[in-house]
Simulated assay, not measured.
Amino acid sequence: MKLSLNWITLRVRDLEVSLNFYHSILGLPVDRRFESRGRQIVMLGTEGQPKIELIQGTDLALKPECGVSVGFEVESLDEAMDNFKSQGIQVARGPVTPNPRLRFFYVLDPDGFEVQIAEHS
């Protein structure tokens, strides 16, 4: 059996605030937006890549402290840090350099989930 990652679901309190973070700030394109069983859902991501699924809800299925994070890769970590700073988003942790080929930092999304931004060289 061959598997491929399709999406990661985040249940969010305010869909529009989270959509602004993932689409406007991180730059993920909106793949589609729809309603299912009375809940608003947005799929974000680049064609051919796994998606982030945001589902509007009042209770988070995962709490931010559960240890789950979403990771993205950038070409320049310094440029990414400057971009977040210019948008008023503070670095929550890092930057960290665990080995000579990897540097990363974390920011928090509107629900407190860690979003890792990494640069591989």
Rank of each mutant, 00 (worst) to 15 (best):
residue 71 G to Y: 04
residue 121 S to K: 04
residue 88 G to R: 08
residue 80 A to I: 07
residue 64 P to T: 04
residue 60 L to H: 00
residue 21 F to L: 05
residue 68 V to C: 07
residue 53 E to R: 15
residue 46 T to C: 10
residue 26 L to E: 04
residue 97 T to A: 09
residue 100 P to K: 00
residue 79 E to C: 10
residue 116 Q to P: 05
residue 18 S to C: 14
residue 48 G to H: 11
residue 9 T to G: 13
residue 89 I to S: 05
residue 96 V to A: 08
residue 72 F to G: 00
residue 51 K to W: 10
residue 16 E to I: 05
residue 91 V to P: 00
residue 11 R to A: 12
residue 106 Y to M: 06
residue 80 A to C: 09
residue 9 T to N: 14
residue 97 T to R: 08
residue 35 E to H: 12
residue 43 M to R: 12
residue 58 T to N: 13
residue 121 S to Y: 03
residue 112 G to L: 09
residue 65 E to W: 11
residue 66 C to T: 11
residue 68 V to M: 10
residue 51 K to F: 14
residue 70 V to P: 04
residue 69 S to Y: 11
residue 27 G to I: 07
residue 116 Q to A: 12
residue 14 D to W: 03
residue 118 A to Q: 09
residue 27 G to M: 08
residue 81 M to E: 10
residue 103 R to I: 00
residue 21 F to D: 00
residue 112 G to W: 09
residue 22 Y to K: 06
residue 39 R to M: 11
residue 28 L to F: 09
residue 81 M to H: 05
residue 107 V to Y: 03
residue 93 R to M: 09
residue 119 E to I: 03
residue 58 T to A: 13
residue 4 S to F: 15
residue 42 V to E: 03
residue 108 L to R: 09
residue 8 I to R: 07
residue 74 V to R: 05
residue 1 M to P: 12
residue 82 D to Q: 15
residue 68 V to L: 15
residue 26 L to S: 01
residue 69 S to I: 05
residue 74 V to S: 07
residue 110 P to M: 07
residue 109 D to E: 08
residue 92 A to R: 10
residue 81 M to D: 04
residue 50 P to Q: 13
residue 60 L to R: 07
residue 77 L to C: 08
residue 48 G to E: 11
residue 55 I to T: 15
residue 10 L to S: 02
residue 30 V to F: 06
residue 71 G to I: 01
residue 43 M to D: 14
residue 83 N to A: 15
residue 111 D to I: 07
residue 95 P to Q: 05
residue 14 D to T: 00
residue 118 A to G: 04
residue 79 E to L: 15
residue 63 K to F: 09
residue 40 Q to L: 13
residue 19 L to W: 04
residue 89 I to H: 03
residue 94 G to Y: 00
residue 18 S to D: 06
residue 114 E to R: 13
residue 118 A to L: 11
residue 17 V to F: 06
residue 119 E to S: 01
residue 86 S to Y: 04
residue 107 V to K: 01
residue 28 L to Q: 03
residue 10 L to A: 07
residue 70 V to W: 01
residue 40 Q to Y: 06
residue 70 V to M: 08
residue 56 Q to T: 07
residue 22 Y to F: 14
residue 91 V to S: 01
residue 112 G to N: 10
residue 37 R to L: 12
residue 40 Q to M: 10
residue 23 H to M: 07
residue 57 G to M: 06
residue 46 T to F: 14
residue 103 R to H: 03
residue 8 I to L: 12
residue 79 E to W: 11
residue 90 Q to Y: 08
residue 116 Q to R: 13
residue 50 P to I: 13
residue 104 F to E: 03
residue 92 A to H: 14
residue 111 D to M: 08
residue 13 R to L: 11
residue 21 F to P: 01
residue 64 P to N: 03
residue 60 L to Q: 03
residue 21 F to V: 02
